[in-house]
């Protein structure tokens, strides 16, 4: 996937380069017509240089990205999850981290995170202020595939029912929109993330436009209103069950230790 070209940058060098490219093209043609292979070669090489320069000028990033924060991996993930406030698939964590915290995580880095956290909790329970834990499925109270949550959240938030993947997606969109609205100068990538999400929410954005936070919030809230009650009932019911049936490890990392070790 290509980088988006930013527009409105340095007009003059581009103009000059384009002029040079046109001129070189003509020279290549002339030399070719004259059968002068050496000159053809020379002009072609110059042409290639000019075009490379043209491409480079076009692609020139407006400013180097701020240097990545030196936070440890788990804290970067925690930061993203705190912003979102709902169980989240690792890919979205990576996007949020990139859009708001200038991080460069990769999904594969998150694969072993949950297992490490579980091991730590088992050896010295509650020794950390929070653990990155699993979200539990409402029916089986088993860890849900690919989702990460934070241990300090209420149990009902950490449980996902059939409707939760949608409600959590909508909530995440709202949280992201709110965060953008709070920021003084939200970056391009933050808007891109919001726009991508908004495109899948009815009435949140028009085809090719950039998403507007207030409108995304309104649209997401509208759809959320349709699902919220049923979703919360299912989650609350399951949370009550989990409290009764599971010990602390189970509540954080799910019933069935085998599967917890396997999940990512």
């Amino acid at each position: 996937m290509g980088r988006l070209l930013s527009c409105g940058i340095v007009e003059d060098p581009l103009d000059a380069l384009e002029e040079r490219i046109t001129k070189l093209r003509a020279q290549v043609r002339e030399a070719k017509a004259a059968g002068d292979h050496a000159r053809v070669k020379l002009f072609r090489a110059q042409l290639a240089d000019a075009e490379r320069a043209w491409n480079a000028a076009l692609e020139e990033a407006p400013a180097p990205p701020p240097s990545p924060p030196l936070l440890p991996l788990r804290e970067q993930v925690h930061q993203a999850l705190t912003l979102l406030g709902v169980p989240t698939p690792s890919r979205l964590i990576v996007s949020v981290n990139e859009a708001f915290f200038a991080g460069h995580l990769s999904s594969s880095q998150l694969t072993s995170l949950r297992r490490d956290e579980e091991r730590s909790f088992r050896t010295t329970p509650y020794s950390r202020p929070y653990y990155l834990c699993a979200a539990l499925t409402a029916d089986l109270l088993a860890p849900a595939r690919g989702l990460l949550a934070v241990s300090t959240w209420p149990l009902a938030t950490r449980i996902v029912g059939p409707l939760s993947s949608r409600t959590d997606f909508l909530t995440a969109a709202i949280r992201i929109a709110e965060h953008i609205a709070r920021l003084e100068a939200p970056g391009e990538s933050a808007y891109r993330l919001l726009t991508r999400m908004a495109q899948n929410i009815p009435g949140a954005v028009d085809d090719f436009d950039q998403a507007v936070p207030a409108r995304v919030i309104a649209a997401a809230e509208a759809e959320l209103a349709l699902h919220r009650e049923a979703d919360q009932t299912q989650r609350a019911e399951a949370a009550a069950r989990a409290t009764k049936q599971l010990d602390a490890v189970g509540q954080f990392f799910g019933a069935g230790l085998k599967s917890a070790a396997r999940t990512a």
Binding site: M1, G2, R3
Partner: peptide, 9 residues
């Protein structure tokens, strides 16, 4: 081949 700018190049 996945780089869009290289495709246009």
């Amino acid at each position: 081949p996945r780089d869009r700018s290289l495709r246009f190049a």
